[in-house]
Simulated assay, not measured.
Amino acid sequence: MKKDLSSQNMDAVLQDFLGSKPSMETLKPESQPADTQEQQEKASEAVLEQAGEAVPEQTDKTPQVVRRISGKQRRASLEEYKEAFLTVPSIEDRKPVFLSRSTRDALDRIVRMFGERRMSVSGLVENIARQHLATYGEDIEAWRKL
């Protein structure tokens, strides 16, 4: 059984499902006068603030447009991911690194699905660490000097 919801209410339902809002009870029907609706929005924000939850700021009242990603864009992003993280690295002077079982299993699944024949979880972790150091290396050096 489908409910007829406006796009604004659908966004609210999606946010509720994703955990951004406390419950469906905070949804406001659009048929109310603007001043009453604004009062209810302020009241629900106050409830969120009292609960210690962040209140998202929406500067404009236009609904967010959800854009779909085409298959071509997904394939391109997969290729970028493979180039960045799933190339077989040359690792010299190896040292052990410990991961939790769940993290290891998740990385192993990625390697099996998308990696080439000689790719391993160790290689993926090496590539992730190299990318992290390349991205944040200068910041880390600056923070070290603080």
Score class of each variant (00 low, 15 high):
Arg68Lys: 05
Glu126Phe: 06
Glu41Arg: 14
Lys72Leu: 07
Ser102Gly: 01
Arg112Ser: 04
Asp108Tyr: 01
Arg94Ala: 11
Gln131Trp: 06
Val125Pro: 02
Ala134Lys: 07
Met113Ala: 09
Glu25Gly: 00
Ser44Gln: 14
Ala76Leu: 10
Asp139Ser: 04
Met24Gly: 06
Pro89Trp: 03
Val111Ser: 04
Lys72Thr: 11
Ser70Pro: 01
Asp93Ile: 05
Arg117Ile: 06
Leu107Tyr: 08
Lys3Ala: 07
Val65Lys: 05
Gly115Asn: 06
Arg109Trp: 02
Gln58Trp: 03
Leu99Met: 12
Gly71Ala: 09
Gly123Gln: 13
Tyr81Ile: 11
Asn127Leu: 01
Phe17His: 13
Glu53Asn: 04
Met10Arg: 13
Ser102Asn: 10
Tyr81Thr: 05
Glu41Thr: 14
Lys95Cys: 00
Ile128Phe: 07
Gln39Met: 03
Leu18Glu: 15
Asn127Thr: 03
Arg94Gln: 15
Asp105Ser: 14
Val47Lys: 14
Thr103Tyr: 04
Arg104Thr: 03
Gly115Phe: 03
Val65Thr: 11
Glu138Thr: 04
Phe98Val: 12
Asp4Trp: 08
Lys82Asn: 08
Leu107Lys: 00
Ile91Gln: 15
Gly71Tyr: 09
Ser20Thr: 00
Ser122Phe: 02
Val121Ile: 07
Arg74Glu: 14
Asp139Asn: 10
Asp108Val: 01
Gln32Asn: 08
Lys2His: 07
Thr62Asn: 13
Gln32Lys: 08
Lys28Asn: 02
Ala51Gln: 15
Lys21Asn: 12
Leu124Gly: 01
Val65Ile: 13
Ile91Asn: 02
Leu133Met: 15
Pro29Ala: 09
Phe85Thr: 02
Arg109Asp: 12
Asp93Gly: 05
Thr135Ser: 06
Arg109Thr: 13
Asp16Trp: 10
Lys82Met: 08
Glu41Cys: 03
Tyr81Val: 07
Glu83Pro: 00
Glu38Ala: 13
Gly52His: 05
Ser20Phe: 10
Ala142Gln: 15
Leu78Phe: 06
Gln8Ala: 05
Trp143Arg: 14
Arg112Lys: 11
Arg117Thr: 12
Ser100Trp: 01
Leu146Tyr: 08
Asp16Lys: 05
Glu80Leu: 06
Tyr81Glu: 11
Leu99Pro: 04
Ser90Gly: 02
Leu18Cys: 03
Phe17Trp: 12
Glu45Val: 00
Gly52Phe: 02
Asp105Met: 11
Leu146Asn: 12
Pro96Thr: 12
Leu18Phe: 05
Lys82Ile: 14
Ser44Ala: 10
Ile128Val: 15
Glu79His: 09
Val66Ala: 04
Arg117Cys: 00
Arg117Lys: 12
Gln32Arg: 08
Gly123Asp: 15
Gln40Thr: 09
Arg67Leu: 10
Ala54Phe: 04
Ile69Lys: 03
Arg144Ile: 01
Pro89Ala: 04
Tyr136Leu: 03
Gly137Met: 09
Phe17Thr: 11
Asp16Thr: 15
Leu107Ile: 02
Pro96Glu: 15
Ala84Thr: 15
Ala12Val: 12
Glu80Val: 09
Asp108Gln: 09
Pro33Tyr: 14
Gln32Ser: 07
Ser70Trp: 10
Lys145Ala: 09
Lys72Cys: 00
Arg130Lys: 06
Gln8Val: 14
Leu133Arg: 15
Lys3Asn: 06
Ser90Asp: 14
Ala43Lys: 09
Tyr136Asp: 07
Val111Ala: 01
Arg74Pro: 00
Ile69Tyr: 07
Ala106Val: 09
Ser100Ile: 00
